[in-house]
Each structure stands twice: as C-alpha cells, then as structure tokens.
Design a protein around this nucleic acid. Structure first.
Lengths: 307, 307
DNA sequence: TTGAAAGCGCTAACAC
DNA sequence: GTGTTAGCGCTTTCAA
C-alpha cells in the first residue's frame, strides 16, 4: 500500500484537500465544525497519514532543516574527530526537541562545499571551525539572509555571529592557581588560524613552549623536553593522552569538549561546561524568529567555570 | 536578488525549461548541440544557479537523504554521549562523499519518533541501539521498503539487517591472554537489552561480577570490591574513568568507540578498528542500489583485531 | 533537437 | 464552512 496523501484523506472523508489541510494544520483563520474535523482526523488516522515535508517545504519556502556544517580537522586522530561530538549531540537534541530536523555535514576546510545551504533550503546553519577564507565565499553568495552562526571561528566579518569559548577568561582563572609564564601549552589544531592565534596569545605562553596537538608521537617528543614544567592542555582527549607521558598532577586542563569525566583526577582543570550547545541554540532561535533581532554584539563568548 | 530557477535560466538562454533541465542533468537520452548546451551552462553560471533539491525530491520521489537515528543512552554522562561519535563521523563522511546528505536525529528510546523517515522521504536509514519493541513499530509501518540497517541492536526480526561488533570473537581473542573466568566485566548500558545480554553471555563472566556502567560513583564502588582481579572494560571512555580507580595494568579494554588512543597504555586492549562505518556504508549502498540485493545473512558482524 | 504540459503533495488566496 | 485553483521548482513523457 502506498503512502496516503491529502487527496486520499479528502476522498475518504468526503471533503476537499483544502479542508483536510486546514484541520490537519489547525489553520488559524478557518473555523471548522467539529463534525467535519473529526471525519478528517479519523480518515487521517485510518490511512496512517504522514505529511510529506518535502512538498510542504517546497510551497512554504522553508525546509525546517538546520545544518551543522563541520570543517573536518586536519589531523585525523580518533581524538580529534570527537572534538565536536558533545556540541553536535547537545545541539541536535535541542533542535530536534524544537521540531527541526538536523542535517550534519562534514566539510573539507580547504574547499568547503556550502551549496547544501541553498540546495536544501536550510532554515539556519552552524558552521564549525571554518577558515577565514570560507566566509568571503559565504558572504558573497549568502546575502540571502539564512541565519548563520560561526562556531569556533574568529572572523572579522561583522555579518555573522561568532560563538566561541572565552579562552581569555579561562586563562585568567587558570592564572590564579598556576604560573602561566612558566608553563607550556598544548593547543588544539583548529582550521581557523585566527582562533588558534587568539588562544595562544591570550595564554601568554611563549611560542616556543606551545605545541599544537597533531599526533601522539610528536606530543610525546614535546613533552619529553618539558617534563619539569606545568602544562596547560586544551581538550579532554589530549589530556588523557598527555597523561600517559607526564605526571597528570603537573597538568592543568581546559575542558573544551564537554567531557571532563575522562580527565585524570590528578590534573587540575577548568571547564567550559555545556553551555555551548544551548547558547548556539538560543541564538539560532532568535535569528530564526527574526533575522534582525540578534544581539548587537556579534561575538558570543562562553565563560569558563571552575572545576 | 532571489535564487535563480530553471525558468530564469531558460529565459536567459532563450530555451525552454525542459532543455535547461536536460543539459544541467546531462540527460542520457537527449542529444543537445554544443551551442545550446553552452548557452544554458553560461546562463546558469551567470545566475549562480543552485538546484532546489526539495523540488527535485518531490518529483523524483527520492530525497537523497539518509537518516542516522540514534537512540539516546539512558545514562547521560558525557562519556556515554560520545559512544557513537566515531561511527557517526565515519559514516557521515562516507555518505557525504557519495553525494548523500545526512539527517542526524536523536530518538527517545522508550518512544522513538520514526515519522521522520516518511516525512522526509529518507532514502535509507540507520537505527542505532534501538529497543526490540521499536522494531515491531517499524516493521508494521515500514513495509514501505526503505532500506533500514539496525546498528548495535540484536533483534529477531528477519526483515532487517543487523550490524554489530562480534563480541564473541573479542572475548575469545581476549581469552588467550586473560583468564576470563576470574575477571570482572564493565559493560555498556545499551538500550537494546538483547545486545547487552548477548555480550555478557559471551563473556562467560558471571553476573555478580558484571557491572553496567551508569556513572562514575557506582563504577567506583564496584571496582573497590574487585581490585584484586583483572577487569575487562568495554569502551575507551569507561576505561579512562576506570583507570582512575584501579591499576590500569589490571585492565583489558575492548575498544568499541573507535578511540583507542585514550586508553591507558598500561592496559591491554583489543579493538574493533574502524570498520563499522564502512561496513554500514557498504551495506547501505548495496541496499540502495537494489533493496533485494543484500547478503542473505542478516547479521553482519565486525571482527575484533588485536592491538 | 526542442518545447508544452502534466504532475509530485502541499498551502493559501479567493470564491461560493 | 468548504471547495477551486494557482502555484512552489523540478523531471519527463510526448509531440512537434
């Protein structure tokens, strides 16, 4: 048996498709007598009706689809692929709850295929860890006004909202218990170079004591020449790996992946909590509701929390 | 400026929409002179044309959308939310590469809303860690013949393909180096009870020495009364947590999350590699190509690999 | 070699 | 109150 359509229901209930559409959508400006309404509802149940969102999208000019577009990390150790897992999971949850459907798409950071936005008529988009150049591309082609939120990306374009962790805040708080000037830093390998730069800059740790996590072997080498110092490590996964090579007690980790549980107990830590998905979600809702209504401040920063 | 449509191109190129559609799709049975083809192609480029997949889906009766529907874990420690991250990441990559778009949707395991399958006219679906009951629901309403692959789920219904790790194989291989009868087991908390049961069964470890990972505190208590034994732990994240409470050298971990890097070096381990996304992808392609063409064996098992 | 036209399933004027 | 109808943007017979 084929999928039932509005027409099928109309026939079964002895009314027109318009009427069916009205009752099924609780059309605001239509007053339908209960008798009719019931007949339609019954028929719909009977026929196991499920609306065809493709058709609806076409006519409504909105898809109910939100994109989460993630630039794939350059290094592809298993740890790096988990970096955004918590964010994606949390955001998807919120979006799904709200009735949106989520399209997840990995992007080649060097050559992001953003056509999906127009092809699928996405109602809103999150772009995660994108290179600055990507945004030229975007702003030239997407004046179309699809709400777009850049995540984990520092870019100068005032057109977009930027959602980031407030690393400066994290380092300041960390500075209370550890002497940053004397530490080394294990940073994450972001595609967005400006974000990476802003992190190392706000850490105050000199470049020669900063290491960007690419793979375990190179990390080991770096750690070997720094064993006597305290290390600041970004990201829970990296901390778990680092802890295999140095005394975890000499590690302070900044939890960016929403997974503090796996950080060695002996390490001290500072976390960003799990506000990122929520903040992303709330801003998106606002933009979806009225594209002009977002906060005037285009940078949204998530504060660090102790513990 | 609004999005260009076929009609716009047609007008610009001085041809009909049909012709435009033909050249843009390289229609097989149409022979278009180069002159026309170029005019059309130029116009399309000029107008920055991007096809509207919604419209295409409607008429083609296929969406180009593949769903990854994941039953949310009951416990929601941050580690549990990462459980499928590697699978999702790998699968998404493969699917995207192949030109499909991926819809990611979390499901309430107790009451999975599977309507998305028909609403969005998904071409294929992966359902991850679903309760047995869900499949009654599915099989009653989805004789519709959407290729569906159950992942991390043991179910009796011969209708679906089941993709699982071969835990029995893992325990056998593990048995070579550790005495399973004398060990304890830390298992994962799957929604699919049959899978959980089959795992503990094939481990050969008695129930009173088996613990299902719910949260760190309860894990700690369990470990406290088992410190003198060797422990088998399922899943890398759990191993990282367990290692905080017992000597990692007395742990043997079965890596199911594609993230062996974070397992403590001192622990011995056995892994399932990263074949799961690939296996899922390949089977789906086959089913997509011809729904009847899958292997007759409905259970696909991923073997364990040492290391 | 090209085009007119019939839909795909749905929504929303606008008429009755 | 309810039905008619004109599309949304695209594919694809079928005729010219």
């Amino acid at each position: 048996m084929k999928k039932a359509t509005l027409k099928d229901i109309a026939k079964a209930a002895g009314v027109s498709v318009a009427t069916v559409s009205y009752v099924l959508n609780n059309a605001p400006n239509q007053t339908i007598p209960d008798e009719t309404r019931c007949r339609v509802l019954d028929a719909a149940k009977q026929l196991n009706y499920v609306p065809n969102l493709t058709a609806r999208s076409l006519v409504m000019q909105k898809s109910g689809l939100i994109g989460i577009l993630i630039n794939r990390p350059e290094s592809d150790g298993s740890w790096s692929r988990l970096r955004h897992a918590h964010f994606v999971d949390g955001l998807e949850r919120l979006l799904t709850e709200r009735g949106y459907h989520v399209i997840l798409s990995g992007l080649d950071a060097a050559n992001p295929k953003l056509d999906i936005i127009s092809e699928r008529k996405l109602d809103g988009v999150f772009v995660v860890d994108a290179k600055k150049e990507s945004f030229h591309l975007i702003s030239s082609r997407f004046s179309e006004g699809v709400p777009l939120i850049a995540v984990d990306s520092v870019i100068d374009d005032p057109l977009f909202y930027k959602l980031n962790y407030d690393y400066e805040d994290a380092f300041t708080k960390l500075g209370a218990s550890v002497n940053l000037e004397q530490s080394y830093l294990i940073a994450e390998d972001f595609n967005n170079a400006e974000l990476a730069a802003s992190i190392t800059r706000s850490s105050g740790i000199p470049a020669d004591r900063t290491h960007v996590m690419k793979n375990e072997e190179r990390l080991r080498q770096f750690l070997a020449i720094n064993t006597n110092r305290t290390g600041i490590v970004l990201n829970e996964f990296t901390s778990a790996i680092a802890a295999q090579h140095v005394d975890p007690a000499k590690l302070a980790v900044i939890c960016t992946a929403g997974c503090p549980d796996i950080v060695p107990h002996a390490a001290s830590r500072i976390a960003f909590g799990s506000r990122k998905p929520e903040a992303a979600f709330e801003l998106m809702l606002q933009l979806l509701d009225d594209p002009g209504s977002g906060p005037k401040q285009k940078y949204i920063q998530i504060k660090a929390v102790n513990g």
